[in-house]
Amino acid sequence: MNCRKERIYMATRQSVEDCLQQCRNALEYAAQQYQQASMQEHDNDGNFVQGQLMLEEAYNDLDKLLLSANEQQREQLHRMRLQIQQMQNNMILLNH
């Protein structure tokens, strides 16, 4: 399940947890691809780009869920958004 199935008026605890899990999965995959790319140069470009796309999708879904989140949920989602942005920046700046 991904974050796109959030409630219209209020995010449920489950929708927030599902979104956070999607973000953690994207971060983990992107971190693996970042590490491999930093060692291998251009051998793994497809997976590296896939990692970037997963981060972008997770970020966009998280952003949508923020609209219906309560204050506590917004704090959790904001922290995750910062982690995603940091990984995106790292991947963009990697001289690969």
Rank of each mutant, 00 (worst) to 15 (best):
I84L: 08
L93N: 13
I8R: 10
E75I: 11
Q73N: 06
S38K: 09
N47P: 05
A11V: 05
L67I: 09
A30W: 02
L67K: 12
E17W: 03
N25C: 00
A58S: 03
Q86K: 14
Q86M: 15
N70P: 00
E17P: 03
Q88L: 06
I84S: 05
I84V: 08
S15N: 15
M39S: 06
Q22V: 03
Q21G: 07
R7H: 07
R7I: 07
Q33G: 03
D61F: 07
I92E: 13
V16K: 04
Q22N: 05
D61T: 06
L65D: 01
I84H: 05
M1D: 14
L66H: 03
Y29A: 05
H42G: 11
Q21R: 08
E17K: 13
L82I: 10
N60V: 08
Q14S: 14
M80K: 05
L66E: 13
T12S: 07
A69F: 05
Y9V: 08
R81W: 01
A58Y: 00
L20K: 02
H42T: 07
S15A: 15
C23F: 02
M54K: 00
N89G: 08
L67Y: 13
M87Q: 10
V16N: 00
Q76T: 06
L82W: 06
L65Q: 05
N44A: 05
H96Q: 14
Q21Y: 04
R7N: 12
N25L: 02
K64T: 10
Y59E: 15
Q76S: 07
